[in-house]
Computed example of a mutant assay.
Amino acid sequence: MDDSTLSDLLHRFGFSDKEVDTYLTLLAHGEAKASTIAEAAGVSKRYVYSVSEVLEDRGFVDVNDHVVPTMIRARDPEEVIARLTADVESMKPGLEERFAKTEPAVEQFEVIKARVTVEKRIKALIAEAETELTISVPQPILTELRSELTAAVDRGVLVLLIVSGTDDAPEDAQSIASVTRVWRELMPTMVAVDRQLGLVAPAEMLVRANSGKQAIVFAQEQLGPVIVGSFFGNYWPVADEVAVADPDELPVTYTDFRRAVFQATLWLWSDSDLWVTVSGRSTETNEHTTVSGRVVDVVQGIVAPVNNTFPVENSLTIETEDEALVTVGGRGAFVEDIEAESVTLALSAPN
Rank of each mutant, 00 (worst) to 15 (best):
K213W: 11
E171I: 15
A209C: 09
I126A: 02
D297N: 03
D3G: 07
D62F: 12
D172T: 10
R98Q: 14
G301K: 13
V43E: 12
A152G: 04
G224P: 02
A215N: 02
E148I: 03
A239N: 01
S211V: 09
T134E: 01
D8Q: 06
I122D: 08
F310E: 13
T309Q: 11
A38L: 03
Q196P: 10
T277I: 08
I176H: 09
H29G: 00
A41G: 00
T277D: 01
F334D: 13
F232Y: 15
T180F: 00
S4Y: 00
D2A: 01
P202C: 03
I176A: 05
T117E: 15
E89H: 02
Y49M: 04
S292I: 11
E284S: 04
P77A: 03
T70D: 09
V303S: 13
R155V: 08
Q220A: 07
I81W: 03
T265F: 07
G156Y: 00
F109I: 14
D256H: 08
V298I: 13
S270L: 14
D3E: 12
H288W: 13
S279L: 08
V68I: 06
F218Y: 10
P350L: 12
D167R: 04
T283A: 04
S272P: 00
A32L: 04
P138L: 14
P69Q: 10
L223W: 07
T117Q: 15
I72Q: 14
P104I: 10
G293I: 10
R331G: 05
D322L: 00
L345R: 00
R155M: 01
P225Y: 02
G14N: 14
T166D: 11
V63D: 04
F218R: 07
H11V: 03
Q196F: 14
I318C: 11
V88E: 08
A151C: 01
V67S: 01
A40V: 12
Q139H: 10
L316A: 02
L27C: 07
A333N: 04
I135V: 12
R146G: 03
E128R: 13
I81C: 05
P202F: 06
F257V: 13
I162K: 15
A260E: 11
F257Q: 14
I112M: 08
Q300H: 12
D167C: 05
L325T: 15
L268P: 00
L10K: 12
A209R: 12
N234Q: 13
T70H: 01
V312G: 13
F262W: 09
A129I: 14
P93E: 08
A40F: 07
E249K: 15
K120H: 11
A324F: 07
F13A: 15
T320S: 12
G94I: 09
D3L: 01
A86T: 01
I126E: 00
R184I: 11
A215P: 09
V116C: 06
E79W: 02
L27E: 10
S52Q: 08
R121D: 12
D256F: 01
R58H: 07
V118W: 02
R259I: 13
F15K: 05
S147Y: 05
A74Y: 01
E339A: 04
I135T: 09
R195C: 05
R115V: 02
I126G: 02
G330E: 05
S35F: 00
I112S: 12
N210A: 10
L250G: 01
P170I: 13
N351D: 13
Y47G: 09
I216K: 02
L161E: 15
